[in-house]
Write a protein that binds this DNA or RNA. Structure first.
Lengths: 350, 350
DNA sequence: GTCATTTTGGTAACCGGTGTCAATATTGCC
DNA sequence: GGCAATATTGACACCGGTTACCAAAATGAC
């Protein structure tokens, strides 16, 4: 029972009450709150005792005003994938759990003209210590510049380093995509299709690079007809599936740049009575809930999104985190994604 | 171009700067900010002009301190469904868009012992104006009592009224489930299975009631073997599917209490080569992304979650919202869910 | 024109913390 | 013991707004 029950009407005790009770000045209490090192053990104990007795909780608004900084960090995201956002968010919360920080969430409308202005207004009004930028908006350099300009720290999350390690946490998507495609090749696949991500997305480019690398290693090439455009949406997967699976000699395996599009391709396969994985292997990317909710379960690449949230928070506000299991200076901020094998992949028929 | 570009180092202008420029006292500026009525048109214009020129943004921390209240509202959620949380969140943000409010997000671990204590600590530390409780934690009366005790307003979101209208926004799930089941019956289905939600969840109970109502109306009953337990997870859907579809006389249609379980049932049908919807119709609930990402697309019930977010915010903090399209006093806080027909439903065979 | 009443603007105190810097222990060293 | 160096603590202004209260100006009644 650490929580002291206060009568509903009873006012919250202030630092002055604590100071009076402990017989010290409010500044000393402030020092205890902020874990100043220049304190006698005896004084500290006395103050802590008084805090405990009164059930004192420092007023964050007052602190924020005095510190000229809010104890808030902002999570800026466009929402391509709700589960990703929430997992990341959970990671951030894991990291700031025992700190004084709280998390502000702010969806951003990537498309809109006023986007930059909106974010500026938001940051000016809330003045968070820092901002975390989730992809795809993390790829927007103007946003990073805006944070810089406003003196708001920032960390960008990406599928490959977007910035120096102080400002970026990323995963090694390219390598893992290559690994996944190598697995297809090892099974005997030679006609492998590709469904691209949206133009201009770094994540899409990385996945494509990984795919191409694996193909090149094996001396295979990608016919234009096997290379379908996409935009990370289910409907794009449907279109790509229609296109690739209507070819006279369709691919025996298709790598899709994300799970939703893979689900679309799989739907087309079902509609065309093409057996998955017997006649067609499919791989996606993200390990979204969809990956395990479709049948057969989708092989995919999981990026360590929650862990990236933890890492991002530690990178953003190391000085506000308790006992901060510090991020190694020499760390480059790259975390490992994993290729996950499920039932959607098998050797090609005969 | 409302945003004024400030040099990076340049300090944020304060109310004093505005007062000086406009040639009035800070009190007058404060009156303008807070839309006081006792002001000459001329004075107000002058102050607004100065604010515009300086790009002044009132410091929310200072206001919060002076007002003795934070301009924050908290969203407390356990995460059964990421998309739901995010959609609701979006609705809340729509509602508070032009206010001074910001949204704090706080996942809650329903299972953990310290849950109540954690939430208490959070609320005491952040002191938000109010809290929004998403299901399933909205069903926890202790949480509501805690808010009451701490003087934090709250609104509970539920599948049926959980509280008086001042504290609750809900949808009419029961009716719409009944409607969906009636649709099955109208198509000719007589052997209809049911996959329940988790025990103790209000939402699960409501969906079950709706299902039973429709059956009763048609003079049908639910054999025990057609009534499968579930917990809203995909794996529960798999188990339920295995059970129901292995019966000598399996149901021709199955209503699942949520989409994930419906996806599980559908996977089993695919594995057993049972044609959906030819030999088996399936209906889910939630209209989650999964519903449209599986094949065939799932008929389901969509609850107006984003709109509920808007409504919840309006109910929680009507006094902080601009021109608040006020919630009608006579409104009971119930919004309408919708039955959505997709490809997973058809008449029973022969 | 004078007095009472209503509007408006100004001053000072305050919200609950923190920074600065000086004042007061405490310790080390000769 | 005396003095310098160092460790602790406190006084006070200040963060950027708000309210309380008062004074000045404007308006209306006689």
């Amino acid at each position: 029972m650490t929580a002291q029950k206060k009568g509903a009407g009873g006012k919250q005790p202030t630092i002055n009450d604590v100071a009076a009770l402990a017989g010290v000045s409010k500044k000393t209490v402030s020092r205890v709150i902020n874990r100043s090192e220049f304190l006698t053990e005896k004084t500290r104990k006395a103050v802590e005792q008084a805090i405990e007795t009164l059930g004192f909780v420092p007023n964050p608004q007052a602190r924020a005003l005095a510190f000229r900084r809010n104890f808030l960090i902002a999570l800026l995201h466009d929402n391509p994938n709700a589960q990703t956002v929430l997992n990341f968010q959970q990671g951030v919360l894991d990291a700031i759990k025992d700190s004084d920080l709280a998390l502000l969430v702010r969806p951003v409308d990537r498309g809109s003209d006023g986007m930059l202005g909106d974010v500026r207004t938001f940051l000016e009004k809330q003045r968070p210590i820092g901002a975390l930028l989730l992809p795809p908006i993390s790829e927007n350099d103007d946003l990073a510049a805006l944070c810089e300009d406003l003196g708001v720290r920032y960390v960008r999350i990406g599928s490959a380093p977007l910035d120096d390690a102080k400002h970026c946490v990323s995963s090694n998507d390219r390598e893992v995509v290559a690994e996944a495609v190598r697995a297809l090749i090892a099974l005997g696949h030679r006609r492998i299709g590709f469904v691209r991500g949206p133009v201009g997305f770094r994540s899409a480019a990385e996945r494509e690079k990984g795919f191409m690398e694996a193909l090149a290693e094996a001396g295979l090439d990608l016919p234009a007809s096997f290379n379908a455009p996409g935009n990370y949406r289910y409907t794009a997967g449907i279109e790509a599936g229609e296109a690739l699976l209507s070819l006279p000699e369709p691919p025996t395996a298709i790598f899709c740049s994300n799970d939703e599009m893979a689900a679309g391709v799989m739907s087309v396969a079902h509609a065309k009575r093409i057996d998955v994985p017997g006649a067609l292997s499919i791989i996606g990317f993200d390990d979204s809930p969809t990956a395990t909710h479709i049948w057969p379960a989708l092989s995919t690449v999981r990026w360590p999104i929650r862990e990236m949230g933890v890492r991002a928070a530690k990178t953003l506000v190391p000085d506000f985190l308790p006992l901060a299991t510090k991020v190694d200076e020499r760390d480059n901020g790259v975390l490992n994604s994993t290729f996950i094998q499920r039932q959607s992949v098998a050797p090609p028929q005969s």
